[in-house]
């Protein structure tokens, strides 16, 4: 009787963890959705300025970064698969690889920001304020959206770091994968946000 109850409780907790995580992602969807809405309204108003602003973006780094993030999603999905098969070591390596790819993404992003800032293109800068209004908005949106995305990715890297610890300690194991799966859900969501950010900023002019 007692054993049956724990099995039921286990299923209940697992289901709750899943539902909770998906619900959280819906809130994130609305969070980024409102930003996309703002972007679309201003792009509708200032199409030419957005076109001009997007000339500053580097399609190469943007594309490479997209590929990096897609790859990291795959490695994390594989890490979940691995732990479900009981391959703890494989899962650990894949998690480390995911974190490393996240860091690569951030590094490339850092250089993109750096190039723009070096040109004097950052919010409230004298150079920017002389540009047409639509371009001021474009760069504002660029920094706000990619910045908040990067912030989410940093959180993701930290979270995967914790998962790595749990996996090493055996807290996450073949029977108990919910945490790692949830970390994965979050990571993939951040990936999806980028999938939409990429055409918004890098494919406007080309």
């Amino acid at each position: 009787m007692a054993e049956m109850e724990t099995a039921a409780e286990f299923r209940q907790n697992r289901m709750a963890a899943k539902y909770g995580m998906w619900f959280f992602l819906y809130t994130e969807l609305l969070f980024f959705g409102a930003m996309f809405l703002l972007y679309s309204v201003y792009r509708y108003r200032f199409p030419l300025d957005f076109h001009a602003g997007a000339k500053e973006e580097n399609l190469y780094t943007g594309s490479i970064n997209t590929l990096v993030l897609l790859t990291s999603s795959m490695t994390l999905a594989m890490a979940v698969s691995a732990i479900k098969r009981g391959q703890q070591k494989v899962s650990e390596r894949l998690q480390m690889l995911t974190m490393a790819l996240g860091v690569v993404f951030l590094a490339i992003k850092y250089y993109e920001w750096h190039w723009k800032i070096a040109k004097g293109l950052y919010p409230n800068s004298p150079v920017l304020l002389k540009l047409p209004k639509g371009e001021i908005l474009y760069f504002g949106l660029y920094y706000a959206l990619t910045g908040l995305h990067a912030l989410h990715l940093i959180v993701g890297i930290v979270v995967v770091g914790f998962m790595l610890r749990y996996t090493r300690k055996g807290v996450i194991n073949r029977e108990n994968t919910a945490r790692l799966e949830n970390a994965g859900l979050y990571w993939h969501f951040v990936d999806i946000v980028w999938i939409y950010l990429f055409p918004l900023f890098y494919l406007v002019t080309k």
Binding site: L70, S73, M74, L76, A77, V80, E181, G184, L185, H188, F189, D191, I192, I195, Y196, F198, P199
Partner: peptide, 15 residues
Amino acid sequence: IATSMALLNLFYFMD
């Protein structure tokens, strides 16, 4: 295309 990429992500990576 972005939406199809998102869907692949949702259905396979996010399971």
